[in-house]
Simulated assay, not measured.
Amino acid sequence: MPVIRPMALLAAMLAATGCATAPVPAQAGSGTIDAINHTHWAINRFSVDGRNAVDIIGPYQGGGGACCFAVPKQWRPGMTVRVDWQTGVGYSFDFPGYENREKYLEWKQKIHSQKRQHSKVVPVPNYSGQETCGITVHFLPCDQLKVTTSCLIYGNPNYPIKEPLKLPEPKSCPK
């Protein structure tokens, strides 16, 4: 049985995901595209500046994990990223099964009718003097977003975004 070396395995995994060959600016810090979902909706898919994340993120969960996202070595005022995402129903407790095709198709239509496409340009906070590790998108109620390039994990006392995971949904959202 062949011996698999950890570094060879890592190199193969990076090559398979495209990370090893992704064009990265010469003076950039790069890492993954991750997310924290603070809402009761599922995040069915999302991308940052056209780079897709890999996970569906359930309500009040984290995920993403796509490789690779690079930020310039030096932050500059007015820096932004574009986030595109789709929200949908987070749970399907009323799934009727497949036996009755009519009921199934009604249920499927109800689930699909609740999907929404979103797009927003978000400011990138000043990361001067800090190590950067890709980007983390925080999905907040009312289709609001915050992003960070911090290498700390959500929940760390020094993590820059302090919103609790389960944010209450307001009765109405500002326009």
Rank of each mutant, 00 (worst) to 15 (best):
V3R: 08
V3W: 11
V3S: 13
A8H: 06
L10N: 00
A11S: 06
A12Y: 06
M13I: 11
L14I: 01
A16W: 08
A16L: 13
G18C: 09
G18H: 04
C19F: 04
A22R: 11
P23S: 14
P23E: 14
A26D: 12
A28R: 00
G31D: 08
G31N: 07
I36L: 14
N37G: 06
H40E: 14
H40R: 13
W41F: 14
N44I: 10
R45W: 10
F46W: 05
S47M: 08
V48S: 06
N52E: 09
A53T: 01
A53L: 05
D55T: 15
I56N: 05
I57E: 07
P59N: 08
Y60M: 05
G63Q: 10
G63W: 11
G63D: 12
G64N: 15
G65C: 08
G65M: 11
G65T: 07
A66H: 04
C67W: 03
C68K: 04
A70K: 02
Q74K: 07
P77E: 03
T80W: 00
V81S: 01
R82V: 10
R82A: 11
V83H: 05
V83Q: 06
D84E: 11
D84Q: 12
V89M: 09
G90V: 03
F93H: 15
F95L: 09
F95Q: 15
P96N: 15
G97W: 14
E102D: 15
E102M: 04
K103F: 07
E106Y: 08
H112I: 04
H112L: 11
Q114N: 07
K115G: 02
K115R: 13
K115C: 02
R116D: 01
Q117C: 00
K120T: 12
K120F: 08
V124D: 00
Y127L: 03
E131C: 01
T132I: 09
G134Q: 13
V137K: 09
L140R: 12
C142D: 12
D143E: 15
D143T: 03
T148K: 06
T149I: 00
G155N: 06
N156M: 01
K162E: 03
K166F: 02
P168L: 12
P168H: 11
E169N: 04
C173Q: 12
K175L: 10
K175T: 10
